[in-house]
Design a binder for these strands. Structure first.
Lengths: 207, 207
DNA sequence: CGCAAAGTGAACCGGGCGGTTTAGAGTGGT
DNA sequence: ACCACTCTAAACCGCCCGGTTCACTTTGCG
């Protein structure tokens, strides 16, 4: 889980710092998270923190981009070789909504939206490592299904975008704007079933 | 345009204050907007500003909720009596994307997302006066079309949500995350045409 | 052990913030 | 002319923030 890999990271408390920073940033946002609070949460002195990261901005970027990469992993489509198109789409929908609607995914999204003009590269990083990658995977899968004659799509990229949008329905926004604070399993399956139905109604290959 | 209506608003520079606050809040966000900057932008002394609004939070809420109401007006569906379903949907799509994708709509959304846990009531206000109202209108229209036998929908509310999601496609997120800074007319029509096509493929009444 | 590297904690700095005060300058009704 | 009211400009307050410094302790390795 911990990453010992990269070259120039010095001491032993690096992961502590990043973990603490992640929790505080996710809870408070960028401006709301004071460096003192972060060092406290990390169980590390402020001096130590600053020995790893020259300033708050860099620390935030490290946390944010690592979260983006983590998100990207979840978006990966399994080798769903044997499955039907419908089953595969349902699987993808489940995976992406699970992350999107989780409290954690919410906060990542929230912060990326909020800070993406203070940190323009953050918005792009999030988009590229998250939605963009997920879309690329699904697009590829759709193209293969088209080649097999199972789907009839002229623009697979657009179709993939449509599918992800359909999976959100309004559940996403209801959570995002604090209209409700959680979402039931039944609501999710209702939405993603409808998403798959609508998608296939448009793109299923004619008999 | 200016609102003389409510009861307890004292002096003549009220609108100046609100207008200046709006521009700065939209540009900088809540934390980023200093009261000094706002008073400067409003062409008003800080003392005057504080004579209208007891603190920064109240000023922000005034600006934000007034923007939400303004947004709600735009979401209203015209009396589209004579039109075909397809034409009406295209019209709705055009209207909603025009606001959603505008720089102004972007910023309103951004701020509401960012501040909706610091100001929980703000998120709800935005959702209710914006997306919720738009969905209600479209739901009503869809139900009428079903009654006329032009559409076949079992859950009009969910269908309306799906339609709005389809209209966004990924254009919205590409703007939100600074992947691109503007969007061409052609891209929009391509997306909303596809949205209407997909929607009708699922919900058009069988012959 | 001995010693250097890493970590600690608390004090400290400059600055910007939200918010208040004050002394005085426009403004308008009678 | 007068006065009550509004507005202005700038100084000011206390606070918290990001970041630095320093004297000190802990850790780990030969």
């Amino acid at each position: 889980m911990t990453q010992h890999s990269p070259q120039i990271k010095k001491g032993r408390k690096y992961d502590q710092v990043v973990t603490g920073a992640r929790s505080v940033f996710l809870r408070e946002g960028y401006e709301g998270a004071s460096v003192d609070a972060i060092s406290r949460a990390a169980g590390v002195s402020k001096a130590t923190l600053y020995s790893y990261f020259p300033d708050k901005k860099l620390l935030f970027l490290e946390v944010a981009t690592s979260e983006c990469l983590r998100q990207a992993e979840l978006a990966r489509i399994q080798a769903t070789s044997g499955q039907s198109v419908r089953a595969t789409l349902l699987d993808v929908a489940q995976r992406v909504t699970a992350f999107t609607l989780s409290a954690f995914g919410q906060q990542v999204f929230r912060i990326c939206v909020a800070e993406s003009d203070r940190f323009p590269e953050l918005g792009r990083a999030f988009y590229q490592s998250g939605p963009d990658r997920a879309r690329a995977h699904l697009t590829e899968y759709l193209a293969e299904a088209v080649a097999r004659g199972e789907l009839a799509i002229d623009d697979c990229r657009l179709a993939a975008d449509q599918f992800f949008e359909l999976c959100r329905a309004d559940l996403f926004y209801r959570l995002l704007f604090n209209v409700k604070d959680s979402v039931t399993e039944a609501e999710v399956t209702r939405v993603i079933d409808a998403a798959v139905d609508t998608f296939l109604a448009r793109y299923r290959a004619p008999v």
